[in-house]
Amino acid sequence: MSFEKVGVVGLGTMGAGIAEVLARGGIATVGIEIDDEALARGRANVASSTGRAVKRGKLTEEGQAEILGRILFSTDFADLADCGLVIEAVPERLDLKGRVFAELDKVCGPDAVLATNTSSLSVTKIAATTTRPDAIVGVHFFNPAPVMRLVEVIFTERSRKDFVDAVTELVRSLGKTPVTIGDRAGFVANRLLFGYLGPAAHLLEQGRTAADIDASMTAIGLPMGPLTLMDLIGLDTCLEVLEAVHADSGDPRHAPAGLLRDLVAEGALGRKSGRGFYTYEGIGSGAVVDPRAGTASTEISDALYLPYLNDAREMVAAGYCTGADADAAMTLGCGFPEGPMAALARL
């Protein structure tokens, strides 16, 4: 099974990035949005991203025109009728995704693969909103999709194996690294990442300073501290993922800190709002107001990093993923300089 035409529903930053990846791969792509205004934003997202590649000399103007020419931008779900694969990339709300899949049930052919790009919701629950749960596959790209190499391909107990295999091969053909796994909250990358990030917020709540927490982790070689990373991701997104993972695992380390909940309730969402764990010079800025150097502590780094390594060891021992999968997830998906299994082999 191969895919000559692929649809993407939802052309926000992630969906537009996925559409660009497909079009770059030479695939005829249909991008769907809810109305003309949203569609114009989606088209602008793709044009802006490819335009930056032209300015950096990574893409010619002719190449950009070819990519944009492969994407049919539309507000009509009927344009997805002849797509062999449709990827849903709308916001993380089960009710909204359910409405999208109800529409796909109506217009897509009986052998079409219907995929969700969810990062935190149960693929099984999403599949339950359709009349064909065996056609549902998770295909979790990481942001920005044109740049990030990792894609998690998720199957449920009812997913057709030939559909899962076809999506995995498509991902590989696009120059990405697929990690194919079963359905569990957080999958591999977010399950491991947020088992590390969530406890960092608890340490802050318990009286450690943000500067000390972050300094402790950069001191052992991580590119940025956990609180800085959470501000970059968005605290509302962090809360959403932690709630989903905690509901699945029951592990107290995954329970969102009260401080995190309070900040989100106040609208302090990190860089995108100008304030989160840190206060920034402006909305979207990465420059911290009154930056302070922290003091690294092995007590802090051990408290955060060692449980993360143990999570990875247990995940691999349970057969959920391979050691190579765990390492790929954290290096390619989360930007860690070293995967957890490689770190364990070195320690």
Rank of each mutant, 00 (worst) to 15 (best):
M1G: 15
S2W: 15
F3G: 06
G7P: 05
V8F: 01
M14R: 07
A16I: 03
A19E: 11
A19F: 04
A23P: 06
G26N: 13
I27H: 04
T29Q: 03
I34H: 09
N45C: 14
V46N: 12
S49H: 06
T50L: 06
R52P: 01
A53E: 15
K55C: 13
K58G: 10
L59C: 15
G63C: 08
A65G: 14
E66W: 11
R70Q: 08
L72H: 07
F73K: 11
F73N: 04
T75S: 10
A78K: 14
L85Y: 00
L85P: 01
E88L: 03
P91W: 02
R93C: 12
L94P: 00
D95E: 10
D95V: 04
R99P: 14
F101I: 12
E103H: 09
L104K: 10
D105W: 02
D105R: 07
D111Y: 04
L114C: 08
L114S: 13
A115I: 09
S120M: 03
S120T: 01
V123D: 02
T124H: 07
A127G: 07
R132S: 14
I136L: 10
G138D: 00
V139F: 02
F141I: 04
F141Q: 14
P144Y: 03
P144H: 04
A145M: 00
P146Q: 10
M148N: 12
R149E: 14
V151N: 09
V151Q: 10
V151T: 12
R158Q: 14
R160N: 10
K161P: 15
D162F: 04
D162A: 08
V164Q: 03
A166K: 13
R172G: 09
S173M: 13
L174W: 02
V179M: 03
T180E: 02
G182K: 02
A185M: 01
A189Y: 06
N190L: 01
R191V: 00
R191H: 03
H202Y: 01
E205C: 13
E205R: 10
Q206D: 14
R208V: 13
T209P: 12
I213S: 05
D214I: 13
A215W: 14
M217T: 15
A219H: 11
I220W: 04
L227Q: 09
T228I: 13
M230K: 06
M230H: 05
I233E: 00
L235F: 08
E243L: 05
A244K: 15
G250R: 04
G250D: 09
A257M: 09
L263G: 07
L263N: 14
G270Y: 06
R271Y: 07
Y278T: 15
Y280D: 05
I283L: 15
S285E: 14
V288C: 11
A296R: 00
I300N: 06
D302I: 12
A303L: 01
P307V: 06
L309P: 05
E314L: 08
M315P: 01
V316H: 03
D325F: 00
D325Y: 03
D327H: 05
A328W: 03
F336V: 07
P337H: 02
G339L: 06
A342H: 07
A343K: 07
R346Q: 05
